[in-house]
Design a binder for these strands. Sequence first.
DNA 1: TCTGGGGTCCTAGGACCC
DNA 2: TCTGGGGTCCTAGGACCC
Length: 302
Amino acid sequence: MAVLRTLSPLVEPVSVDEAFLDISGLERLVGSPQQIGERAKQGISAATGLTASVGIGPNRLIAKLASDHGKPNGLTIVGHDQVQGFLDPMPVSRLRGVGRRTLPRLERLGIRSVAELRRCSRERLEEHFGRQAALSLFRQARGEASDRVITDRQRKSISKETTFGQDVADGKLLRDALRALSEEVGRIARREHLQGRVVNLKIRFAGFETYSRQHRLAAATNSDRRIFTEAWKLYLNGKLPMKPVRLIGVGLSEWASEEGHQLDLFADPEDVRREQRLFAAMDRVAERFGRGKLQLGLPRKH
DNA sequence: TCTGGGGTCCTAGGACCC
DNA sequence: TCTGGGGTCCTAGGACCC
């Protein structure tokens, strides 16, 4: 990412090893698209010893597909006038949103390539795939996509989950695991100054049978204790099968607006301050000595 | 593939409101 | 009144991506 930032101020990281760059208007300052692509590869190689695949195109879709096209270690440039010729022979499985469920359904309609997809009407796509998916397929088949690079994308949720080595039937063990996960979620939320209004519980049993339960809080929170008690309530009251658990997870989402947050009307302000100091201290311990060295005891009111 | 972890987005049904 | 139409919010689940 540091290498990429030397090439353009507009960098959008997509994952640990992938990013979009807006390189429009950089011809004089940095070089031609070809030169920028080469410099990215060289810089990454010099810094990390790793190869990288670069794709350049008029929008995000074409750039990404161009990058896939040259994998590994490629540099593929697709100009405006080459877009349709580049897309048409491609299998639809390369498009975004076409995975292990959608691909066979497209094939049943006789659609294997992007050229074939382009011949299918929007109405027909809508009948089979719903409004949004149809629109996405329709536009992708024509090489249409956003060309905006978003540098300040904010995360929308924080979650932690764990799969047990052996399915867990012991409620106490489950409770401890959930508590530890809640503490991790809370810690990340506090580090990023986020307070969430929705707590999510995820449970998986043998056979990949997966459930989720969520609850919307009256006030946003990033308190470990609050996240944990809500998640545990969801487990107890969620009408879930009472079976040994293979995976348990907890998530926090729907951030409260930056302007301020609702205070708990009935909480003693001194308790709130003490809890904040407690969490701050716990976070420092965790940063310094690692997770799990210190953890909350039983909630006071249970 | 007997199946890890962390995300995003979409759909659909029910409750509720005007 | 057994009954229209449209909108929002909440919740659960699924598809997909890296």
